[in-house]
Simulated scan of single mutants.
Amino acid sequence: MPHEVRAVVATKKGAPLEVQPILVPDPGPGEVLVSVQACGVCHTDLHYREGAVGDEFPYLLGHEAAGVVEEVGPGVTDLLPGDYVVLAWRAPCGACRSCRRGHPWYCFDSRNAAQSMTLLGGTSRTKSEGGTPLTPALGIGAFAEKTLVAAGQAVKVDPAARPEAAGLIGCGVMAGYGAVVNTGGVRRGNTVAVIGCGGVGMAAIAGACLNGARKVIAVDIDDKKLDQAEKFGATHIINSRGTDPVEAVRALTGGVGVDIAVDAVGRPETYKQAFYMRDLAGTLVQVGVPDPEMKVEIPLSDLFSRGGALKSSWYGDCLPSRDFPDLIDQYLYGLLDLEGFVTERISLDEVESAFDTMRAGRVLRSVVVL
């Protein structure tokens, strides 16, 4: 029988969020039902609400979550009821051209639940059959007491991890950490600059430090965020509101620039700053999500003469089944301060106000606790 639960729904572009009863079906083949314990409020959820991701309203928001498997569908063999999991929005299919050539972190046909969760009134796929289907954010939809996902999206981790902290691995922390470690390939002795000290940028700073970077430079326009960056391991900070960050980074690196520059903002000006603050043959990693209308103009001669690599990081180029348990272990060993990302704990009814707090830059993460 379907499960009636409370959930946060974006009904139409720009409209205030609503907490509504929804129906979550029992898991079908290859699916699992997860009882959500905590879910972070991510900028991507706001992008969905504002119609910047698509127009498949209504959306069931929330995707940065941890919880417990409640039921498993036919054919699910590697998960059992009671397993503690972090939800991932990449579940490699194992069959696409990227998976076949050994790059499952770029999977082009990631798995999601086949069945729809719906607004109260039916469990069918079409309105005419009695239920309005919901589009789950990033294939998850975890601002809800329960959610339905593909089995591959539920990654089993150590149950000793607090859900408020563990869930953040599912998106922002993994994106930032993976950007510098998986995409940027940071090595012991490297120099790193990170532009933007929100949740993703802080995770990049932490990842660079944990993997041996000798100099980690945090760049932002907010002194409070820069103070936090030092707590996550930044060796130097630059407030770019009144300082040229490219010149400041060069001054801190003997005039040459850094080995790896991470743009965790995703704007043309920050991309160009990251491009020019690299050493020759250095690596630029863009992980900040840009507006679709944004464009960057860089002289082709500069692209040629500076060499190196310009990379976009998709979800930290992570393989959830490999990386999630590793990051959770680092947290439990006291190496990765996931608790430091949790600014406030809120209820489902407070997600709308959490968006306002996030816009104002007053939090790393608001986390819904169920």
Rank of each mutant, 00 (worst) to 15 (best):
D158I: 04
G184A: 04
K225P: 03
V192K: 03
A142Q: 05
G167H: 11
F232P: 04
A161M: 15
D220C: 10
A161Y: 08
G199V: 08
I237K: 14
V194N: 07
L210G: 12
Y177H: 10
K215N: 11
K225W: 01
G198R: 08
V149L: 05
G172Y: 01
G201E: 09
A179R: 03
D222N: 15
N182T: 05
A193W: 08
N239K: 12
I237T: 15
D158A: 02
G212M: 12
L148I: 14
A229E: 11
E164M: 03
R214D: 12
V192I: 10
D220N: 10
I238L: 00
A151C: 11
L210Q: 15
G152Q: 03
A160Q: 15
A142K: 09
V173E: 05
A193C: 11
A218V: 07
G201T: 12
V216R: 06
D222W: 02
A142H: 07
H236E: 15
A193Y: 12
T183W: 03
G212C: 12
F232L: 12
R187N: 14
Q228R: 13
D158P: 10
G167Q: 05
G207S: 13
G233V: 12
G130F: 11
G170R: 02
V186K: 03
L226C: 05
I217H: 01
H236A: 14
G201K: 04
G207M: 13
M174C: 09
R162Y: 00
V219N: 04
D227H: 01
V200H: 08
V155N: 06
E129A: 15
K156G: 01
D222R: 09
I221E: 00
L226G: 00
T235A: 00
G184I: 11
I217C: 02
G185Q: 12
E129V: 03
V155P: 14
C197W: 06
G152R: 08
S128W: 01
I195M: 11
E129K: 13
G176Y: 03
G131D: 01
A160F: 03
T235G: 13
E129R: 13
G141T: 08
R188G: 09
T147L: 11
R187M: 14
I140L: 15
A175F: 09
I195S: 00
V180S: 10
G139N: 11
G141Y: 11
L148N: 13
K225V: 04
G152C: 06
V181I: 09
A144M: 12
G152F: 01
A165Y: 08
G152D: 02
I217E: 03
A213Y: 13
A137M: 12
P163W: 02
Y177W: 14
D223W: 07
C197A: 12
Q228E: 14
G207R: 05
G198L: 09
A142E: 10
V149P: 00
G233M: 10
K231A: 10
A193K: 07
F143V: 12
V181C: 03
C197H: 02
V192Y: 04
T183K: 07
A165D: 14
A213H: 10
D227V: 04
P163N: 06
L226A: 04
L168H: 02
A218H: 09
P133W: 04
L168P: 03
K146D: 05
G170A: 08
I169K: 05
A166L: 01
